[in-house]
Design a protein around this nucleic acid. Sequence first.
DNA 1: ATGAAAGCGCTAACAA
DNA 2: TTGTTAGCGCTTTCAT
Lengths: 344, 344
Amino acid sequence: MTLQKNNLHAITIYDVAREAGVSDATVSRVFNNKEGVKEATRAKVLNAAQKLGYVVNLQARSLAGGKTNVIGLLIPGLDNGYVVEIVRGVDQELARVDYELMVYTTHRKGNDEASYLQYVANGLTEGILLVVPLLSAEFLRALDEIGYPYVLIDAVDDTGRSFSVNVTNWEGAYKATEYLIQLGHRRIGFITGILELSSTKARYDGYLTALKDYDIPIDQALIAKGDFGKNSGYLATQHLLNLANRPTAIFSSNDVMALGAMDAIREVGLRIPEDISIIGFDDVPEAVSAYPKLTTVHQPLEEMGRVGVKLLMEQFENPDTPSKHITLATRLIIRDSCQPLNRE
Amino acid sequence: MTLQKNNLHAITIYDVAREAGVSDATVSRVFNNKEGVKEATRAKVLNAAQKLGYVVNLQARSLAGGKTNVIGLLIPGLDNGYVVEIVRGVDQELARVDYELMVYTTHRKGNDEASYLQYVANGLTEGILLVVPLLSAEFLRALDEIGYPYVLIDAVDDTGRSFSVNVTNWEGAYKATEYLIQLGHRRIGFITGILELSSTKARYDGYLTALKDYDIPIDQALIAKGDFGKNSGYLATQHLLNLANRPTAIFSSNDVMALGAMDAIREVGLRIPEDISIIGFDDVPEAVSAYPKLTTVHQPLEEMGRVGVKLLMEQFENPDTPSKHITLATRLIIRDSCQPLNRE
DNA sequence: ATGAAAGCGCTAACAA
DNA sequence: TTGTTAGCGCTTTCAT
């Protein structure tokens, strides 16, 4: 009735124990690499296990207080190349530390943070990586209270007690804007991201500061709202292009919107970068597929994923490790979508 | 000592039972939607659980013979947009059926099929989705033997006993080639995929058949080997372009290689589609980001993922369901990378 | 309709 | 160094 699983699990530590002529506890010791097992015994057990094709039952181990070697990863979804890159980094590091991965997507649960907690509470995972930009302080406090290990990836730490990784958003945006300025541009359009996010604010601020530093007056008309989606980049750009005095360059808060912007630009018959320069942020794979190849601010997405895992492992090894915040550097990747301003 | 997890699991069915004034068995019945619980009792239990913040422990449930509501997904990695699309479809359907997802990547284990079996045997997942093109018959037989539910996504079924989903590769390739022919092209280059895969062979065969049907002689020089990687598309195209009598159109066995091909074409100063037309296969998101937007053969990747999950669910519901093979249709998506042959 | 009791496969004291 | 004994939290007969 419970079919498969039981046939499969015909082989338990008891079977191995019998085959090896030892007790089940000894088998357990061997498989958990505990000290104090005679080499000969260990070999006997390993042999028996091999012969029977024994595989540990993670459920049982976990239930008995052992570890599952599984971590959770909560992401909005796979719709964005940005997230995929992070997941890839996570996967890489997981291979090194020999952990497995449960992937939870928030869109499956909506915005219901309480239900995210179930993922944490169901006993499957030892810790969780959070790639969710907007998490309430209550949610994080709940995790803190039960002492459940977690790491915020590219999200803010309101509590000050979280382990987290993020990047130099402000500096990246500053450099991107500065680059455009140095190419001679003065009318530089800006497409924002979702304003609630701290990364968005930091990029926005980097843009503003660069302008100020170079004594370029800030023109609110050149600042268009976006939401990180391709279409919002398209729309924002249409708006910018319709301006009486339109920008000669556009800095988009992410690559996906920059791609939308490129569509809008071409649609009105303008050339990139001859007529208008465009620069993005993220450096997702599509940035290279685009034509012209998109100049952008590189975020070390994969590395963020890797670092996230490492921070989780640190917490596993020592539950009392004080929280740690890591900031990774962004850098400008110059490709083909920008050029010096044509002065007619 | 076993720290967090235990604090977390302060609330068990016993706590709920006490709070509700019933036995633990009754609580279990309620949470498994079993018949024969008085409505009033059910309400009492639900209330108590709600109040205490009870969350089922999947480990314990599974160990006791219940279900985990978790499935496994074995993929090569997240490096390819193709795989990501499938995963997205899986995720969508999972949300509907309320299952969770363990993601296993083969590159973590190398080509060691035996170790994939551990994923199956560790008791965590109820079934597994295989997005691995080259799986030995032995491996599948092992799964069959223990009666473990699995579904092959876009992979061959050597045993004839597998549940599987794939697409009309042959027809797609035929139509793509035919489209090029109808645009007037006669020298049509072809970039193959990994020759060992049945999908690759089908696409190759579709190409050849279309040429034959239209009485176009097959020129081996126009057929270049690729491996589905971007760089191989680039290299293959360089080769094709160096031919004395170079092709006027190229059909690439996937989009990623087509993107590489576009780079190679532009590098020698040729224009797309004016000088040379290019068509891909897959319809990954990058196909639209590319410029010109890539004409390609659409594979319903997300749907493959969704159907895969459905086939798994069918097996859960009825372990005796005879195996089923589903083929989804591909279709030609005409965008901007092809045009009628210029006859000088 | 509900409760009592046994056991899923494993780990972790405690003995020996 | 090894074995014995108790659970971990849950589901599932079998009683009641």
